[in-house]
Design a binder for these strands. Structure first.
Lengths: 238, 238
DNA sequence: TCGGGTATGTCTACATTGTAGATATTAGGC
DNA sequence: GCCTAATATCTACAATGTAGACATACCCGA
């Protein structure tokens, strides 16, 4: 039941020789904890024991628990690759959307952090890693010919829809492994029939939700809508 | 500094005579606490002292803290009025979107609950108050002629975009009352200029964000896109 | 009027959390 | 080798959610 050893550091190149701790190692362990046991399992003490360190020592790598959470979101967002030099901005936005969706499915427990941490931190004070996607997408759009403020509009509509979709999909996708049948898994039979007739009737459709297809459709609608609405009014003004 | 008396109960009709507690009173006090001091201020002890009651007594009205949070989200969503009999479904969806946006601005501290609580609760087990909007919007769409599954698609795209927009707007809208100037308030000057040129350049546009207009545009794009894309493929199939 | 049962209120206690502060230990440069 | 600074570890404290025991208030039928 004892944890064997800290496995080989997954940093590229210069692996720390012995037991040397680093911010990256700490954050990686934190992310692992969150992925495996949920957000509330990430306590200083649990993280300390996962790293075979005194919990207090962790404060060298994150000022407090909130900073730790920020670090985790940063770490996750680093998995998202954005290529600012692609001239096909629509294709790029579509690809990024799917990548972010997959990333959210890979780290569902981190999604609450992704959406709520920015709510309590002014834009300029956020971890740089969480602002980089914004900057890069703005660059992508501006390089594609958009005005700066038009790019901001497009970004807002795009990211808004994207985050909304992810929240939606994750809300419906609850792994309740012991109940598998659609109706049971969703627990819809608990709803009073008179008050919720349509929801109950939609059980089968709710059960086979194709998130990727739904996202793709949405992006298509959004992109065509944007290019139609933005062409005239926004590319010119201001 | 002592809170004078519990003001008149805001229940309609049969007001409890003296000091009688009820679930509604407890939840209202909880919401007040959250609105005024944030989510983390809502502890059993603080809520107890706000109601002049022993904290333990609150467990009669909410099984635990999580249930209390659920109750608060339910209470807030009750403020949202949806009229399922309006034949102008597009107008209705647009109005609801604006109403929900205003509601979020009225209770910004509740928004994290709104978006994260459903992530940890299977659909069928959620508080009924949080499912009612879904059912009502489905009804609205089905009455307007949509197939049940088409209605579900529309709902998903709509609510996804709506929640995404709200998150977006609240992220940019941080009241940091001591700093008022745009650049300072957003703290953009802290960003390294080489890495974040466009973001820094967008400071003025970020400062005067018209959320209602942005939302309205998005809804327009979405609705026109939906009616175009849904007319053929989805109204007919399945 | 009263007795008893149920609902409600109150108190104590405990495990767990984040984190301040003091202390011990180690490493590096002259 | 020794002094300074970085790092590690320990102790301690206030706050949290909540279980469980106990006390009180209320109501309703006889």
């Amino acid at each position: 039941m004892t944890i064997p050893q800290q496995p080989a550091g997954d940093e590229a190149g210069r692996g720390p020789r012995k037991n040397r701790l680093s911010r990256e190692v700490v954050l990686a362990a934190a992310l692992k904890l969150v992925d495996e046991e949920g957000l509330e399992a990430l306590t200083m003490r649990r993280l300390g024991q996962a790293l075979h360190r005194d919990p207090m020592g962790l404060y060298r790598y994150a000022a407090n628990r909130a900073a730790l959470l920020d670090g985790v979101t940063e770490l996750v967002l680093d998995e998202l690759a954005i290529f600012g030099d692609d001239p096909d901005w629509q294709g790029q936005l579509r690809r990024i959307a799917h990548d972010l969706r997959l990333l959210a499915l890979r780290h569902p427990n981190v999604v609450p952090l992704l959406v709520t941490r920015p709510l309590s931190t002014p834009l300029g004070l956020r971890p740089l890693g969480t602002l980089r996607p914004l900057e890069q997408i703005l660059g992508l759009l501006i390089d594609a010919g958009f005005t700066a403020s038009a790019a901001l509009h497009v970004y807002r509509a795009y990211y808004g829809f994207l985050y909304g979709h992810i929240l939606n999909e994750l809300q419906e996708f609850i792994v309740d492994p012991d109940e598998n049948e659609a109706l049971l898994r969703l627990g819809l039979h608990r709803l009073p029939p008179k008050e919720f007739p349509r929801l109950r009737a939609l059980a089968p459709q709710l059960a086979d939700y194709d998130g990727a297809a739904e996202l793709d459709e949405g992006i298509t609608i959004l992109l065509s809508g944007l290019s139609a609405h933005l062409a005239a009014p926004l590319l010119t003004k201001d």
